[in-house]
Amino acid sequence: MWDYTPTVKEHFLNPRNVGDIPDADAVGEVGSLACGDALKLYLKLDDDKDKIVDAKFQTFGCASAIASSSALTEMVKGKTLDEALAISNQDIAEFLGGLPEEKMHCSVMGQEALEVAIAKYRGHEVKPHDHDHDHGPAYPDQEGTIVCKCFGITDVFLKKVIETNKLTTAEQVTHFTKAGGGCGGCIPRIKELIAEVMGKQESEEPRKRPEKLSNMKKMQMIQEVLERDIRPLLWADGGDLELIDIDGPKVQVAFRKACAGCSSSGFTSRVVEQKLRDLVAEDIVVEEVAA
């Protein structure tokens, strides 16, 4: 059964502002037929070229894509361009009384079309980028490097969505942006991006390895790094680890939950080792134990 709020349904059945504005000041287009949804947004500004006086849309997509577009046009009317730019995809979803998580990408598409329209109007160069997949890019106007080839989605865009929506798993990123929902080849890269964004949020200041460490201090730091930097990343994938013992440079850990028995746990322990070497001491060796 459809899991739509009455507002989503109402905006889908009676969409506001469908159509085009022939003398629009700003037009933003995102998505493609191949991707399964696309939105063309038209904005008309007042004489001072500051306030949005009219907005119209055309959308190809599912009910929530149409409802999100309809909501967006209602939300931007009467706003200045700067006020409009402050609208986030969450604001669009909230306006609709919420969207099922796997449909959040519809609200993201709305926000993205708005951003593209205003950026173009303000004369920012919006360059289309390469794509080597028959899908074509979903958001041809983003900057950055393509991560998801199936839907043509870049790292810059993904990081923004991960940050704004505080996403912690690759599955959530797929629900919000579609990235990773095709062949799935980019899921490891998406996990890295989540890790990057989370790492950034945790400490803006780059941490450095201390010059000298007492044994006690070193053990404390190892524990800290595991708690702050490593375990949250594993949680994001449904895994976990436990510190078993520290013996000189040797750090013994046991993987838990999804990490236990995971074929890539060898890889994971190398990642843990590198992080500890970067932040605690250069000679650390991580060993995985079964305990």
């Binding site: 191949a34 991707c35 399964g36 997509g61 199936c150 839907f151 579609k178």
Partner: peptide
């Protein structure tokens, strides 16, 4: 359609047939 299947790409059957996206 992708949007009803929980996945993001249209049905594996239609894709195997090469039905254009």
């Amino acid at each position: 359609s992708a949007c009803t299947s929980g996945s993001l790409e249209p049905s594996h059957v239609l894709r195997a047939m090469g039905v254009p996206f």
